[in-house]
Design a protein around this nucleic acid. Structure first.
Lengths: 197, 197
DNA sequence: AAATATTTACTGAACGTTTAGTCAGCCATG
DNA sequence: CATGGCTGACTAAACGTTCAGTAAATATTT
């Protein structure tokens, strides 16, 4: 959907972001989306069969935005891991990233009751974990990373990142994000970096 | 509320659990709660001013159940940490624990739009982190744990636990819970346990 | 290239249903 | 016979969804 989609559908997705941001998932009505949308409410039904279809598409849209953010360049494995942390748990979080993370948090809560959502989150979780695992694997091969259990380390890192992200979004602003970031970076250093020989 | 509450209010809380479990937060209506409740819908309004008040009370109720689950006995610090992991991320998750965790996951998604929720989750987050920190501190004092940055280690462990919990609940059953548990236990060993001298 | 038909994007008003919330009154117990 | 716990019938507003219709763009015929 990233590029090839009609401007109208894109506008609907943006309106859904805004509505979700203002109302939360519990009060997310078609009317609320329409209110954030320049065109009419009925147009939503021209483009989508029903509310469920619209929201399913929105989740895909939001996940694409998330994946785009962590599209890492060619770098050393250790640098890539640090870039990943920096992208998922940035020191200061701008409006754009904030609304993506909030949206994904809200929709995740709906997973236990919507099978399509569960599939999407499973998919993204696996993609992310595999991505991390392959970075670590490259590091092991090049000698930059110790000969660790690759899958285990990937699981651990992904979980910790998600945990920090979630706690940051759902507690007050005083949440010690610098401490958590430091802990994440140090975690990578201590568990993964090969001892100098 | 754990003990001193009327049976009716308790029944309302249980009905809310069931409704939340069947409908999800998005479709959680007063009627849905009443349907899971032996008595009438109007009675809900006899006991609570409105839906919001009922849900606020429910969150408190659910958080108490959660806290009760991790009420650790007197044990060695390292044992306590392992008990904490075992309570929050059990190998197999029974119905009771599952519905508590699901409920807390769903309500957490609502935090960005409901200040009362944010306060509660901030509170529980802080309590949990402080509890972990004090366990680690005791370990350091007794020499069972290395002389680490206590707050940092507590942050890291709490985040990782939440991350594992969340991923487990929002991906398919194939989620490698054993690997995640192993990683958590190993994490405690490797980062916290004092080297034998 | 003018005239006509068809399709596409879109709207406003309306539909039946469901929602949160009210209220007059009932029925047991003290 | 008063009071606390409780109910069923009710309402106004909000809900998701439909639909008849419009105006502009595009395709087809003449």
């Amino acid at each position: 959907m990233t590029d090839d989609v009609s401007p109208t559908k894109r506008a609907i997705m943006e309106a859904t972001y805004d509505a979700l941001h203002e109302q939360g998932y519990g009060d997310l009505t078609i009317q609320a989306i329409a209110d954030e949308f320049e065109k009419s409410k009925s147009l939503l039904y021209y483009h989508y069969e029903d509310k469920e279809a619209l929201l399913a598409d929105f989740l895909e849209y939001a996940l694409e935005e998330f994946m785009a953010e962590i599209d890492l360049q060619d770098h050393e494995p250790l640098e890539q891991l640090e870039m990943l942390i920096d992208a998922t748990v940035p020191e200061t979080i701008d409006e754009e990233r904030y609304r993506v993370q909030i949206a994904l948090l809200e929709l995740r809560g709906q997973v236990p009751h919507t099978d399509v959502y569960r599939e999407r989150y499973t998919e993204i979780d696996r993609m992310l974990t595999d991505r991390v695992a392959s970075i670590i694997e490259r590091g092991v091969e090049s000698g930059a990373i110790r000969d660790v259990d690759v899958e285990l380390e990937a699981e651990l890192l992904v979980s910790t990142i998600l945990g920090v992200q979630t706690r940051r979004l759902t507690t007050y602003a005083e949440f010690p994000i610098e401490r958590s970031r430091a802990a994440l970076f140090e975690h990578v250093q201590q568990r993964l970096v090969a001892a100098e020989s």
